[in-house]
Design a protein around this nucleic acid. Structure first.
Lengths: 195, 195
DNA sequence: TGTACATCAGTGAACGCGCGTTCACTGATGTAC
DNA sequence: TGTACATCAGTGAACGCGCGTTCACTGATGTAC
């Protein structure tokens, strides 16, 4: 039992390193087994299949991302709506830039048809949206509208970060990305005050 | 020569259909050959390899997207900045929703390390950004700022559409997505006037 | 303590499948005489 | 018109490789007597 838990922890650690160094496509049964110092069979003793392992890895990343965002949210607690949104957005960008591959894996991995992620996974995601919602609490009192606005802002920042890191907007220049984020958050904050 | 051109056109047609019906991962040499009524070898006579074929297919999609956006931009020509941005954003969403798989392929396909897309590819992309820049011409006179703002807005709308269609923001509901786009464009338009 | 047997996690070779790409061959078309 | 030869696009079986997953076997540990 204890050994099994240690092995599970070790496989997760190795998987995390593989994703970080080489990306999701390097999370392969043989690679995992070699690096974890066990046999392929053992990997399948601990995880149902590779999809389950990848989901577990993505949940780890989601948890780290959550911690980063919560920290930023905490530091900016006493600032204006604009400053708090900007702190969250910058933290998101920073996390994505520093954990590029693990962060990409979250969006890259698609479960096979008909299979669905565990409920905790969605719950972890909702917690991230909740942070954005909190920033909007002062300015948007209506519940549904705030929820929708929070998701829109999250997705917008995600879009900027995502296309930047994939170099789909031209060469990757952190400063350019930061300016785009500031522009977006600036517009949002000014726009919100007038609603 | 004529035959070769016909075959190339046919392969593109078949490839487009495969992407639309089943997604990028179904663009396989054998599938293409079977559906196009030629041999695998012939596919390799017309295209250097599958990456080249996929890039050609993505350029077709990019051209169609460009046509849709230009049409929307044209119709809204006489509207306010807000209305023109909204028209573009809605057109983008509509195109993505109606051409989900081809649209996704543009972002999904990654060239192997060290290989680079043909210059026309990037040019086609820049034309899309140019449309957004035009919408901002009245409100943002400074060149670099307008360019950066246009990319930020494009990426933001892309983020909303992208996460919505991938169901990463919860269930996919077109109306919810439309509201998010309206919220974003509304904030942007209001925010821009105050700069 | 010693012996025989049961249990079960761990193992890794092998299975099954998929897929990009190649290349020796075919057969139709063109050319020279 | 007829014959011999050259050319070359087209073909598809075969190569090479990768990878998820399985399962018959191993060997360590526990149990009964």
């Amino acid at each position: 039992m204890a050994y099994r838990d240690k092995l599970r922890a070790n496989i997760l650690k190795v998987g995390r390193k593989l994703i970080a160094d080489e990306g999701l496509s390097s999370v392969q049964a043989r690679r995992i087994a070699t690096e974890a110092g066990c046999s392929v069979g053992s990997v399948y003793n601990v995880f149902e299949d590779l999809d389950e392992l990848i989901i577990a890895l993505n949940m780890l990343t989601l948890a780290e991302l959550g911690a980063s965002l919560r920290a930023a949210h905490g530091s900016a607690r006493h600032g204006s709506t604009h400053d708090r949104l900007l702190a969250l957005a910058h933290a998101y960008f920073l996390f994505a830039a520093e954990n590029k591959q693990p962060w990409r894996s979250i969006f890259e991995h698609q479960l096979p048809e008909g299979r669905t992620a565990p409920p905790e996974y969605r719950e972890d995601q909702d917690k991230l949206f909740a942070l954005v919602e909190e920033c909007l609490a002062k300015d948007v009192t209506e519940n549904e509208l705030r929820k929708s606005a929070a998701r829109a802002l999250f997705a917008s920042v995600h879009g900027i970060v995502s296309l930047s890191l994939d170099r789909k907007l031209g060469e990757f220049a952190p400063d350019a990305t930061r300016r785009q984020i500031e522009f977006l958050v600036g517009c949002a904050a000014r726009g919100l005050q007038q609603v």
